[in-house]
Design a protein around this nucleic acid. Sequence first.
DNA 1: TTGTAGGCGTTATCAA
DNA 2: TTGATAACGCCTACAA
Lengths: 353, 353
Amino acid sequence: MQSIVQVYYFCPVENKKVTIHQLAAKLNLSASTISRALSDHPRIGKETRELVKRTAEELNYKPNTLASNLRKGKGKLIGVIIPRINRNFFSYAIAGMESVINPAGYSLMICQTNENVETEKSSFENLINNRVDGIIMSVSIQTTNGDYLQRALKQGVPIVQFDRVLPNIDVDKVLNDNLSGAYQVTKHLLEQGYRNIVHFTGPLHLNIYADRLEGYKNAMIEAGIEVTSDMVFENALTREEGERIVNEMIAANTLPDAIFAASDFSALGALLTLKKHKIEIPGRVGIAGFANEPFTELTEPGMTSVEQHSEELGKTSARILIDRLESNTKRELCSLVSFKPKLIIRESSLRKK
Amino acid sequence: MQSIVQVYYFCPVENKKVTIHQLAAKLNLSASTISRALSDHPRIGKETRELVKRTAEELNYKPNTLASNLRKGKGKLIGVIIPRINRNFFSYAIAGMESVINPAGYSLMICQTNENVETEKSSFENLINNRVDGIIMSVSIQTTNGDYLQRALKQGVPIVQFDRVLPNIDVDKVLNDNLSGAYQVTKHLLEQGYRNIVHFTGPLHLNIYADRLEGYKNAMIEAGIEVTSDMVFENALTREEGERIVNEMIAANTLPDAIFAASDFSALGALLTLKKHKIEIPGRVGIAGFANEPFTELTEPGMTSVEQHSEELGKTSARILIDRLESNTKRELCSLVSFKPKLIIRESSLRKK
DNA sequence: TTGTAGGCGTTATCAA
DNA sequence: TTGATAACGCCTACAA
């Protein structure tokens, strides 16, 4: 990689800041009249309004949202905190939020934590200090408790948690039914004749991984299979971990019948490693992931996974928040919405054809 | 998909907003003293400062950034406008920006336009009205001119354009050398013995597609091959378009030797369609994309593409902007930085082994 | 229909 | 070291 730097001519700056007072002076009106004209207040002459708007345009007036929000006490702004914006699940969730929030006249302030709890806290503070109307969030992998949220809650800033949520905190929550998703996957694997099914999971303080583990266990127990601790791999979310674990299994000659990973990425690592070693999928080992990342459709064999309706989750989260913001009556209840995810069966787990 | 709704108990709100005046009253100090204490002003007693900070903590005081920014005239906030946050290129560019901007004490306000020029304009207005210190942006596919930027520029809000930039607008620019990237790809295909190479491209008013087309043409001409208009497909950026075009080629029996797509997605559509028809890649048709999306590594055969160093682009854009913000001397020049992208050769174009 | 006055929460200036 | 005052730009009673 190489970088070249060139320079060229520049457009000069006129540094005059136009306010409603400038407009007022120019038009021999009062600032309040300008304010009313610009905000389509009813009590104003039609001609005045148009004159003001025209002049504002000419002078390149830009309303100062800061001042306006400060004065009004609030400003149609919603904060979003998520672990990563480049995860399919989250980016579609954001698209869903936008589709609800923008038409309602709000804007979004998006923060990503990169799975870092300190970043999460400071983003949260930042949003609160910027006086957002509400916050929609999904916690990082490192986050174990929500004490830092409590104080904001008391201040009356509504929070909606989605997907990865914290226990013991009374806010609206929008979830996937991870237990059901994992149960569906595991049951499917069992139906395909796999018996010794292992599970790749993540930090179990996070609801999503705890629930997926639970769903897996439920299906196994239902099939009369005991789940022992050596069947559950806890730090197994990344492609690299998936590769590492499968390599170890191959070396130790302990390959299971099937792998159900709580992450598509570790499932990918497993799949690629098995392929590299010419181990047949789904014949010798079946594979299933979770989240239906776009690449699951492209691997060979295609990877069985679980679709989580992320856009719907985003929409619902946004609707609940806006509902709370716009209903003046203070409600005493929180809602808990849960979406049932959908098993997407592909060849990686289809032993019986 | 199904959704269940439940409700449960709720945590009540204490709706008292704490300001520096509350703190002042409580401590029998003046608001200015509180302000100074909280912002670590030098002219303040150590004990007072600690007392104030402790009390602020106790009362759950949150500084009002709006008020502070309004008063100070500015607020350590940088706006980012991009087409889509879930494109690998852009999400890594953002990661790069964050890595520079956060340590410098700024925050990011991220807006995605979904390739819609109206959304782009309103996001832009919104950022300006929120008095961001500067804006880093990449325009949408629909954007053909930057008139709406000019007025903001005159107001002195610095703008850095990256990747997809507009001509005739004097701002700092950070680019990929798309011409070089496309030239490298095409030359590589030629070296592999492909002759009849077609090009999938996008709207040619966008620098990135115009430049890639140019690079492709340069290499072809250099090899003594004339590029005729039927060799260039203009609306060919999506997977669906890639599929459609290749299907038509197959039906019309006009398959080329190789396809160089300006987008990995249309290259993917082409690749999958060829595979479906059992047309050999790279034997019968060679394929190359652009952007090195993660899936290019996973297709079979792996897809040749071009890595664009998006994180570096993001970092550089951020550095240039911050530099401009923090250098008090007004500079008369804009910089133009260009990164040379890197050809990533995979099997989809490797006819000679 | 328009103007006046005051304040949103903070900080900078000046004085004490 | 601290306090009083004014102002950032806007909005909203209230008065005219």
